[in-house]
Design a binder for these strands. Sequence first.
RNA 1: GGAGAGGUGGCCGAGCGGUUUAAGGCGCUCGCCUGGAAAGCGGGUGUGCUGUAAAAGGUACCGAGGGUUCGAAUCCCUCCCUCUCCGCCA
Length: 445
Amino acid sequence: MLDKKYLRDNPDEAIARLGLRGAQFEAPLRRFAELDIERRNTQTELDELKSRRNALSKQVGELMKTGKRDEAETVKAESKALGEQIDELEALFSALDDEERGLLLGLPNFPYPEIPTGGEENAVVVSEWGDALPAQDWMADQFELGNRLGLFNFEAGVRVTGAGFPFLTGAGAMLQRALINYMLDVHIREHGYTEVRPPFIVAPQSPLGTGQLPKFGNQMYHVHIWDEDKPGTPGQPDFYLIPTAEVPVANLYREQILEQPGLPIKLVAYSPCFRVEAGSYGSEVRGLKRLHQFEKVELVRIADPERSWEDLEEMTLEAESILRRLEIPFRRKVLPTGDMAFGSAKTYDVELYTPLSGWLEVSSASNTTDWQSRRANLRFRKEAGGKPEFAHLLNASGLALPRLVIAVLEQYQQQDGSISVPQVLRPYMGGMELIRRPESGIPQV
RNA sequence: GGAGAGGUGGCCGAGCGGUUUAAGGCGCUCGCCUGGAAAGCGGGUGUGCUGUAAAAGGUACCGAGGGUUCGAAUCCCUCCCUCUCCGCCA
């Protein structure tokens, strides 16, 4: 959510800044300006009426006490009339206030000044690391490798749930678990994060705080509690499955004022992620590239506004450090204004390189500045007795798993068809050095 | 899921229709006192909106929402949550 006072005082600047996102926000911003004036005038008037009613009511009390019943009745009548005016004005006020709030909830964050404008094609690669491993004739892609080695089972996933919900099996499941544990350990032990195990199902207030609601509810799975009285007519969703751990973790301190918390607060969370991901199917997203359910280790920082841009740089490096340790080449892009998430002021995407699947996004690191914290009403006090101020909220995947698994499979495959387990993961896989086709195990069909 | 109790300021806790601008206490803070400190005494001590150059002031908030009333922390309705006991359960 943007700062009302800023919008009020700098309407043209606000229009120009949001204009950088491509879409037109002039109309809602102009409407906001109108509403804001009307709302405030209404409130002033309303407060005045209430003040008078309070005085009259007090007067009634005194008159009753001193036995002046008739006079009390007169004042009562006056106060009642006032009350009717108040009710009317109150209705107007809440209509204006609701519309204003709705408008504000529908506005994205201001982009950071120096980032490129335009769509996806304008993303700028700002750094690259590692040497891309060229594809060889004998190499197989992730889908074939996984099937051959019995690492996952897509058909079974379709049977059990539907497309996009694969089983990981055998060494595939172990590899995934090893990566999760390894990444958590790196962030906890070396980057100073505190681990959080969040709820995977959240009430609507939480995605409202992070910005998925009210505009993007159709990208999340809804959970309804069965109501005997009105089966089949769910109405308002009761809960959502989290699309990322960012949602519960960024809401950890929602509605709180943190007293001299010593920012940044660094949180790392593993979670499954559920996304509807309408559209875009076919061979391009075959295998593990795009799923309805995937897993992720997520970094969240609650930052001091004065140094949140440094926090963004640090977090991106922390995400990238996983790839360095696994010796997987990657590059970093700055997303242009038109390609950023709604709440982000600046986003880096980290893409790893795989021999057969090419560049794949495995992390997205964003500074949402005070946009999310305003929605979530997350504040802190820098010094005792000081004014509460909105913290900055940042998030970065550290990292998303399926595509990381793709990279490990494709890059670490051997000519004999096995996959060599990356050094750093071996302790997490009981010392396993090679993933081979199991001679015995569960049937694959 | 059943029965009972309860949700009040940073914390404890009173209030159960009108001197509540929420008693009292604790904590915090400022001042007085003191050589210094403790004790004691006195003042201050929330958040949002509004307002202002800044103040002052106004208004709302006693779990949430609605209702009754001239007036609601207080009465009524609905919901949420916490605690105790029972049941069920990984």
